[in-house]
Amino acid sequence: MSAPGTLPRYLLRRLGTAVAVLWAAYTVSFVVLYLLPGDPVTTMASGGLDGEPLTPEQIEALKAQYGFDKPLIVQYGTRLWAALHGDLGASIQNGQDVRGAILEALPPTVQIAIGGLLVAVVLGGGLAIAATYTSQRWLRQLLMALPSLAVSLPVFWVGLMLVQVFAFGLHWLPSVGASGFPALVLPSLTLGLPMGALLAQVLAKSLTTVLDEPYVQTARAKGVGRAAIHVRHALQNAAIPALTVLGYVAGNLLAGTVVVETVFTRPGLGRLTVQAVGVQDIPLVQGVVLFASLVFVGVNLLVDLIYPVLDPRIAKGVPATS
């Protein structure tokens, strides 16, 4: 490390970007949710698709309660200020604090998110390494074809088919619910499969590229064996694109739970979101969007911290060409 100070500066810059992105995400969600339909209270007050219309007095009262009678820029300012202090407003459905609602729904979601991530890393990583390691052409082609098959399947359908086979057909696992470890297996698998497929595609492609690099040829010319080349030379070099995708995947886990929790009728953040959209509960939807981008930004900040460990060129500001 001949240049001290570059690494902290790199981290500081990343942190700054993360904060800016969060602020911007707040702004985007504000624009989408509060500006697009014109008058959010009317939308909210109609109670979604099947609610009773409210009287004008009730609407006025609501507007005052949520601050919609003020100019938009003032609303934006006060809401952003509140959000900075962790106050995301109150749900329209039941007046519950949005932050509280999200935190309450979180634990079961975190369970399948971790499960899904494990499935993605183990299956995706394993598949990519196996596919590039084997010298059997047919096996390689078969393994390489699996991920592109998996990303073409609708997630909700995969979940239903898994339920069909393992719950209704074989009676191995429960079809719905959130109690105990067995109930975690199918949702984690459903959540992890498409992400694992994505990871496998990127890692396999990256490994293939790296294995063609001249420095791998140098290693082979030294007499280094296949396995050692994979472990000592290829994996670390191929890891950067895969890590980028892993960050993306982990940041998108929340989004995946929207569908998965619906399929398996599990409680959690995903279900909360679906319900909130169903009744057009704008503060709650915005809360979820913000929380998701907080997770996304946090995960990617973590990924940014790992990059310099993997590639010494990044810490020094040298553009990595691989």
Binding site: V21, S29, L36, A255, V259, T273, V277, V288, V289
Partner: peptide
């Protein structure tokens, strides 16, 4: 920068936010 922000919101959630509004 705008694109970065859009990418930091998972696609399906962005879609859901738009559906909430539209």
């Amino acid at each position: 920068r705008v694109v970065d922000v859009l990418l930091s919101i998972p696609a399906i959630l962005l879609s859901l936010a738009l559906i909430t509004a539209l």
